[in-house]
Simulated scan of single mutants.
Amino acid sequence: MSNDAQAIDVQTVTVPHLGGSTVGHAFARPYDPALPTLVLVNSFSTSVDLYRPQFADPELTAAANLLAIELYGHGRTRSTYPHFTYWDSAIANLQVLDRLGIPEAFVLGTSQGGWVAARMALLAPDVVRGIIPLGTSMDFESARSRDLGCWDGIEFCTPSLDALAAPVGDDWVVPDEFVDAVLGAGLGEDVSPDERAFWHAAHRRNYAGDAGRHRLRTATVNLRDRDGLHARLGDVRCPVLWLQGTADSVYSVANAEEEIRMFTGSPDAELRVVQDGQHFLSASDPDVVDAAAAEFVRRRS
């Protein structure tokens, strides 16, 4: 992953979902209506800054408008209602596209972003032209997925849910141990000091005070207790390109091999295995991801 510590300039747009929401988002370059749009959906507790490598790639930014959108519980996205799910983030993302005057888009999602991408395709098949899930799973945190070599998300998340249960003061910031656990799961142990410092600072900005604690806890509830999509995947009608790393400590290649076959309604559902790729694949292997995404969008546009 790039050690460039420059954060992405985030804008906000207001959408009606969840009693009225302000959604954080960023374009890599000024929007060009002549180009297709690729929406980028970030992984757990990160932000649009996860996609700094993609924003810096001239080939990818020449192929599509890159629009990173922050999920509920992440970055600058806020809602009037205090609770939310991944379905809510999928709806809000579609409303962002509508507010920005973008009639259709491809969607790339890392980890939790992958199942938000699938939800967007299910909700708006006339808008979503194709999805690119990275390092993800379409299941809930099931015994089946653990039997296939995926992590124990219940064991990972429950201690944090307990620790984040009680109200805190205005001076609270997310503990460094939480951030290190996310980086370890997402990128392994080979994270540069500069990159680690960048994400520590980003998490402290995004998760401060009692409101930050509540957003982080609700995002963690969503991760642990989400619904699975297996019975719905046959209704995804767009092309699917799934990239899965062999070094992913969260979700396994064996799981991806089973689940890619569940996209029975897709005209083209392909799994590509990335040797030594980590869980946050867009960050660990941006060259592979960017080239695949650019080719996918060009071929489908």
Rank of each mutant, 00 (worst) to 15 (best):
D176W: 00
S145G: 13
E257L: 01
D227M: 05
T264R: 11
C238P: 04
S282A: 14
A63L: 03
L40P: 11
Q95Y: 03
Y86N: 11
V221S: 07
G75V: 01
G186Q: 14
F280D: 00
R237S: 15
V273T: 14
L241K: 02
E195Y: 01
P133Q: 08
V39M: 12
T77Y: 05
D32A: 09
S249R: 14
Y207E: 03
G212D: 11
E189T: 15
E70M: 02
D180R: 12
A163P: 09
G212E: 04
S45L: 01
E259N: 04
I154D: 12
L50Y: 02
N206Y: 08
L38A: 12
V250L: 05
P159S: 10
G153N: 15
C157F: 01
A269F: 01
E177S: 08
W151M: 15
E59D: 13
H200G: 04
V240A: 07
Y251E: 10
C157G: 09
E189G: 14
F280S: 03
T264I: 06
P159L: 05
G109V: 12
D248V: 05
P36A: 03
G169H: 06
G20N: 11
V221D: 10
A292G: 07
Q6K: 02
P53L: 13
T136A: 13
R213A: 05
E295S: 12
S266E: 07
S145C: 04
V250M: 08
V182E: 00
R213H: 14
L38K: 12
R213I: 04
Y81I: 10
P36C: 04
D32L: 04
T37K: 04
A185T: 08
D248R: 06
A64G: 15
E189N: 09
L94S: 13
P30N: 12
E295K: 06
W115I: 07
G184I: 01
S301V: 08
F178H: 11
S111M: 11
G228D: 06
V273Y: 02
C150P: 03
D98N: 13
V191A: 07
R129Y: 01
S252N: 05
D225T: 05
P53C: 07
A56P: 06
E258K: 13
Q95R: 12
R298N: 06
L50K: 02
R196P: 00
A292K: 10
M262I: 04
F263H: 09
T80P: 08
G130F: 15
Y86I: 12
G114I: 09
D235Q: 14
A105R: 09
A201Q: 02
V191Y: 00
A143Y: 15
V253Y: 15
P58Q: 06
E70L: 12
W87H: 15
R213K: 13
G24L: 07
A166L: 02
V173H: 00
D98E: 10
S47K: 02
M138I: 05
R217G: 02
L108Q: 15
T158Q: 12
G277R: 05
W87S: 15
A219E: 06
L233I: 03
G113Q: 13
A163T: 05
G186N: 14
T37H: 09
S145Q: 15
D126Q: 13
R205S: 06
R205T: 03
G186F: 08
R205N: 03
I131H: 13
S249K: 13
L216K: 10
A293L: 10
D170Q: 14
Q11N: 12
W151N: 15
L281V: 07
